[in-house]
Design a protein around this nucleic acid. Structure first.
Lengths: 231, 231
DNA sequence: CTTCGTCAAGAGCAGTGCTCTCTGTTTTGT
DNA sequence: ACAAAACAGAGAGCACTGCTCTTGACGAAG
């Protein structure tokens, strides 16, 4: 058993090293990760990698899950910083953390939120980690509502079918959050994703050198839309 | 000269057919376009393609430019439908047109707004067509401002440096549009892009079957943020 | 009628993911 | 303790990719 675990430990270390090298390749060479190049860097032959990952897609999936978790952890840690009642402070901290992580890990961000690879379908293991950032954001709204520092927006503009969809999501992840507020929270999350993607994928105007200020202003606009108090 | 132009015409038709076949491959097989497969479909050998396009990236660039123009034309046509003073009608029409185009041309949309290919840098020819949708959207705000149906938002929250950046963009594309309003317009454009990307790239909640209603509600929220009158 | 530019084909290079077979080592069951 | 089974890595090979270079044929221009 102890002898078995030494083999298992070597194997686990091998898997880790493959992921580290693969992540390095991802950062330098971009999204088209080459198994052979990873193997070359490790002094192995390409077919040996298949002892540890059944296919290239499985290696990518492992990297994706870890990236989701890293992003989620960064956002959660930032949200945990300010006072619980400082809703705007938490909002900005969480948004900035997501952007900072994306800017320091552009290739991994592209892996998560870029165009999906045609043949590749993200397995179910990814959906849990993927939801950590939006759950954190809407959590800020939930806390604000509970503390009475946030009034739910009018729900009159919501069609019934959409309201039912949103209620289902709220039941699963955010019990007690009214549908209209949830919709606004999702709008904030969509905007955050759009802002980061525009900046990272280079579609943003070149004539916008002060990107930090632009980002902060746009996230503040969304905080206004959601109704976070200024205090 | 006439004989020369017959040769040139055949050449132009050849280029067109390559692009048509390539677009078909793009739609079925996804983003990794294979030159050899295109050549095979045309009954040619792969090296013959290089008579017409110096590289695969150049072929992709041609497709990208045409896709930008198609999307831009769709958005502009939709915007031209409603009465000029029906700002909200124009806004929704333009947003829906962008989404419809993306849903019917997912691979081309991914080419435009997905993760950039590592080695590939979009040439300058693309930035003109790429700006047609946002120019159209902000044009709605400009018209509303000129007609007095839209009041510019307060500019007190804008840092000076950001204000200068926005003023430069406004001078180049939207003369007369105040900085704070331009920022809101860009927020709307970012949100539109984020909404479409989330839906198309599958990151949207599976538990949201009524996507049309969701999309309309989210774009209406942005119209509220911008200050488009309800009437 | 010859010359020259264009076109398509073919071979070939370096690279890719992946499979299969072979050898050597390590762990496991008796 | 020893044989059996599992595992790790190497190597060859398949089908595919983008791209280059050379060769031969054809049509337009002088």
């Amino acid at each position: 058993m102890a002898a078995s675990s030494i083999r298992a430990r070597v194997r686990a270390e091998m898997i880790d090293e493959i992921k580290v090298v693969a992540r390095r390749h991802l950062a330098t060479d971009g999204a088209n990760l080459s198994l052979r190049a990873v193997a070359r860097d490790m002094g192995m032959v390409s077919s040996a990698i298949y002892r540890y990952f059944p296919s290239r897609d499985d290696l990518l999936t492992a990297l994706i899950i870890e990236a989701y978790d890293a992003l989620g952890a960064a956002v959660e840690a930032a949200d945990a910083g300010p006072d619980r009642l400082d809703l705007r402070g938490r909002w900005h901290a969480a948004c900035r953390a997501a952007r900072d992580w994306a800017l320091t890990h552009p290739a991994e961000y592209a892996l998560l939120y870029g165009s999906p690879v045609p043949g590749y379908a993200a397995p179910d293991d990814t959906i849990g980690p993927a939801q950590r950032p939006p759950v954190t954001l809407v959590g800020i709204l939930r806390d604000g509502l509970a503390a009475g520092r946030l009034s739910p927006p009018p729900a009159d503009g919501l069609p019934g079918e959409l309201r039912a969809d949103l209620a289902e999501i709220a039941d699963a992840y955010f019990p007690g959050v009214p549908e209209a507020l949830l919709a606004r929270g999702m709008a904030g999350w969509t905007q955050l994703f759009g802002l980061i993607s525009f900046e990272l994928f280079g579609r943003i105007n070149r004539a916008l050198p002060h990107r930090d200020a632009y980002f902060d202003h746009q996230t503040a606009l969304m905080a206004d839309l959601i109704g976070l108090p200024r205090d």
